[in-house]
């Protein structure tokens, strides 16, 4: 018994050793970000539908003029686990955009209204055009942006709220802005959000902080549409495994009792 305890202590020691080091190396990379209590955090996190819908509105009215989100399809807007717009609403959203399709039987490309099956349209046809229109900087595609940045949703939130006057001794180049939370503090995107910038369809007051929260939530969903399904299934599976472990443990003890008695 003592041996078992000693072994467990050794394991815990090594494990905590690893965890401390792991945390340190991750922390070494990240700046102190603004943190928000996200509804999708934690083991039982889910998305707030209202926030996702408002977030979509922010993307559509504010961000989409420069940022593509090309891996998302319009049908995703009505699927489970996301903003869950009604099928009709999602169809109308899709139809409000013009898609270039073709070639037709005359060999020409033509424009048609969007369908659910179409991917979100891009503001620029390619990366080079995006760079040229934005002073040489490419506004990154946002499909997996939340997963592509240390800090995830908190990073997006912090950047949007992190614009301020640079300190005295900080040299800022032309066409570049100072952002407290951007690694290196230089960012080519100007401060976009301001109070009352848009009118939320659900009547919520569109403060800068509210919009930042909503777009961060929307982008988290865009990066991880399976989050809710993942949490739901995961909970059931781990519960199942714990019960199974218990049963198998008892079976093992019963089986081995005949050996120990020999």
């Amino acid at each position: 018994m003592l041996k078992k305890i000693k072994n467990i202590i050794k394991i815990l020691f090594v494990y905590s050793f690893i965890m401390i080091f792991a945390n340190n190396s991750i922390a070494a990379e990240s700046l102190d970000l603004l943190k928000n209590k996200w509804s999708f955090e934690g083991l039982f996190g889910t998305f707030d539908r209202g926030s996702l819908r408002r977030g979509y509105q922010v993307y559509n009215e504010v961000c989409s003029s420069c940022h593509s989100i090309e891996l998302l399809s319009y049908r995703n807007l009505s699927e489970n686990g996301g903003p869950e717009f009604s099928l009709e609403d999602a169809k109308n959203i899709a139809a409000s955009f013009e898609i270039i399709d073709g070639p037709n039987s005359d060999g020409e490309m033509f424009a048609r209204p969007g369908r659910l099956s179409d991917k979100f349209i891009k503001p620029y046809p390619n990366v080079q055009a995006a760079k040229a229109a934005n002073g040489g900087a490419y506004p990154p595609d946002m499909s997996v942006l939340v997963k592509a940045r240390q800090g995830g949703a908190n990073y997006i939130y912090s950047i949007l709220l992190g614009y301020e006057e640079p300190p005295e001794d900080f040299k800022l180049e032309d066409g570049v802005y100072y952002n407290k939370y951007m690694p290196g503090h230089n960012i080519k995107m100007p401060n976009i959000l301001s109070d009352g910038l848009l009118d939320y369809a659900d009547g919520t007051e569109a403060t800068t902080q509210q919009m930042a929260k909503d777009i961060a939530a929307f982008l988290t969903w865009a990066s991880e549409p399976s989050l809710e399904a993942r949490h739901k299934i995961g909970f059931k599976i781990i519960l199942y495994l714990i019960i199974l472990a218990g049963l198998v443990y008892l079976s093992m003890k019963k089986l081995w009792s005949r050996i120990e008695s020999k």
Binding site: Y240, L241, I243, L244, L247, V248, L250, S251, K254, L255, R258
Partner: peptide, 26 residues
């Protein structure tokens, strides 16, 4: 076979059956 004791075998079977069944579900 090892034990030549069918009685004990039967009692143990339920635990094993339950484990098997739950395992099969998984």
């Amino acid at each position: 076979d090892n034990e030549n004791n069918k009685e004990i075998g039967k009692r143990r079977d339920f635990l094993f059956t339950a484990s098997y069944a739950l395992g099969a579900v998984g």
